[in-house]
């Protein structure tokens, strides 16, 4: 089984790769982990991970600059329904559009838009640090307790159009989407690769996940 981590120059690529490797090494049947941006390799993936930090538009442009990359993602995720996980901006890109630095179109895989966090004046933006997550029960959140802390760094968040696509939230002080799910497509606003043991558990759950 092949797990592909998409390399389009994202700043957290290394951290994501190392965290997945650490978890994968403990699996009974480890994946072959490939870090690549080559469409032919992506087309052979059994699972895909899309990291992302920085500005939405910059990430989107970086993906589209690589010939055939987006098309191969669409083929594997939308047509073949292989398990996909987006992290931080890699999750926000799933939205229809983002309002960060003007309007920018996303992948449109999950209905909704990425908007600025609205918080009272004494709340710092970016929302940076460890915050509690509550969630709907799902195998992707196996062995995680309600109100577990995960590491967040962001100023915008994904407001999903449908409640059913938002499976986890945090509060700052208003509810913020912490994780999204639609069929085979999973995404976290927090950084599992930086959330210590609980983050590793999320990665384990994703590696063991077989979307129906």
């Amino acid at each position: 089984m092949k797990l592909v981590i998409i390399n389009y120059g994202s700043g957290n690529l290394h951290s994501v790769h190392k965290a997945f490797e650490a978890v994968n090494n403990n699996l009974e049947n480890p994946y072959e982990i490939i870090v690549t941006n080559t469409p032919s390799e992506i087309l052979n993936a059994d699972k895909l991970v899309l990291p992302g930090v920085g500005a939405f538009q910059d990430c989107k442009n970086a993906i589209h600059k690589i010939g055939g990359l987006f098309e191969s993602l669409e083929q594997v995720v939308i047509e073949e329904k292989k398990a996909f996980m987006g992290i931080c901006v890699g999750m926000q890109l799933l939205a229809e559009k983002s309002l960060e630095f003007g309007e920018c179109e996303g992948f449109g895989w999950i209905p909704g838009e990425v908007i600025k966090i609205e918080a009272p004046a004494d709340y710092k933006i970016p929302h940076m640090g460890w915050n509690e997550v509550t969630f709907r029960n799902h195998e992707l959140l196996n062995n995680i307790s309600q109100n577990t802390d995960f590491y967040f760094v962001h100023s915008y968040y994904f407001r999903t159009q449908k409640n059913e696509n938002c499976i986890a939230t945090t509060k700052y002080p208003n509810p913020i989407t912490a994780a999204v799910l639609k069929e085979n497509i999973f995404g976290t606003q927090f950084h599992p690769e930086k959330s210590h043991n609980n983050g590793k558990q999320i990665i384990t759950n994703f590696l063991e996940w077989e979307p129906s």
């Binding site: 700043g11 930090v53 920085g54 500005a55 910059d58 940076m128 760094v153 100023s155």
Partner: peptide, 8 residues
């Protein structure tokens, strides 16, 4: 900040 994101 533009290249790597403010949070970095």
């Amino acid at each position: 900040a533009k290249k790597y994101g403010s949070s970095t």
